[in-house]
């Protein structure tokens, strides 16, 4: 039912197979199926509580799923069910799978006691084993790419929200992920600062073969940037398609309602 238009015969970069996630009695993801092809840009929209952010969080392995399987480039992120429950993947396997994925958070979550460049050096040095100089070079390149060449030694508290979020993007890229997850990355920003962050994402999309999943409330950006838009409702994809299809001619009643409400808010 959820055939992705962009998928081809090759292995999808990300595959959700009947994935469920519950918090107590609340079902946040309800047997979700989702395939994302390599290099594809997918925007995830929907009302709050529809499970959008959870999709990214379980993909980053920040939370365990209760049922189903997630594959990354054909490899399972989780173990298969055993007996009556799911046996979670062990720490080593999770680390290996996580190394393919980078995530940018709504509230940046920069390390406040480290400068911008140190934020981008910490993980490459301790996880990838890069030397200090190499890590610094890589971090400086990435910070330059996001337009912060003159802020390398600034601490997060000395940067604007937009600048902090760009540091966060550079920090995630420093690990050379194949999939990037953006979780409402402009929601905590003043409107005039959103543009600089979205521009960085735009450039990233055109220059690299990165697979991207973004949860966003910026319908304009989703429409312009994404290859595909998924509308989430009650833990499932209620409707998906190209931006033109989904924004221009929504089929589902919930999608129409949601888009109407969003447009009215502007």
């Amino acid at each position: 039912m959820n055939e992705s238009p962009a998928s081809s015969s090759e292995t999808p970069m990300v595959r959700f197979e009947r994935v469920s996630k519950r918090y107590g009695a609340l079902t946040v993801l309800d047997q979700l199926d989702l395939d994302v092809a390599s290099g594809e840009k997918v925007a995830i929209i929907g009302p709050s509580g529809s499970g959008k952010t959870t999709v990214l969080r379980v993909l980053m392995a920040l939370e365990r799923i209760d049922d189903g399987v997630i594959h990354i480039d054909g490899e399972p992120l989780t173990h298969m069910p055993q007996g009556d429950g799911l046996v979670p993947a062990d720490a080593r396997h999770l680390r290996k799978m996580r190394s393919h994925i980078g995530m940018v958070f709504q509230h940046f979550n920069l390390f406040p006691h480290m400068s911008a460049v140190q934020n981008c050096m910490e993980a490459p040095m301790s996880v990838l084993g890069l030397g200090k100089e190499e890590a610094h070079t890589r971090a400086a390149e990435l910070l330059t790419m996001v337009g912060l060449a003159d802020k390398l030694d600034h601490h997060p508290a000395q940067l604007s929200g937009g600048q902090q979020q760009r540091v966060a993007i550079a920090r995630a890229l420093a690990m050379r992920p194949r999939v990037m997850l953006f979780d409402e990355v402009t929601s905590a920003l003043d409107p005039e600062l959103c543009g600089e962050v979205l521009n960085v994402i735009r450039e990233l999309g055109s220059a690299h073969q990165l697979t991207m999943l973004m949860v966003t409330h910026q319908m304009g950006f989703a429409r312009e940037f994404a290859d595909r838009v998924c509308f989430f409702d009650a833990g499932r994809i209620a409707e998906q398609g190209s931006p033109e299809e989904l924004f221009g001619n929504p089929q589902h009643e919930r999608t129409q309602q949601f888009l109407r409400a969003v447009m009215e808010a502007i």
Binding site: G102, F105, E122, A123, S126
Partner: peptide, 27 residues
């Protein structure tokens, strides 16, 4: 120390001990 700090470290694949020592304890 905010949970987001742990999550950011986790997303960068930093180990638990490393996160504690380099990220959480200094704060």
């Amino acid at each position: 120390v905010p949970r987001g700090q742990w999550e950011a470290a986790s997303a960068l694949n930093l180990g638990r001990f490393r996160t504690l020592r380099r990220i959480v304890l200094p704060q």
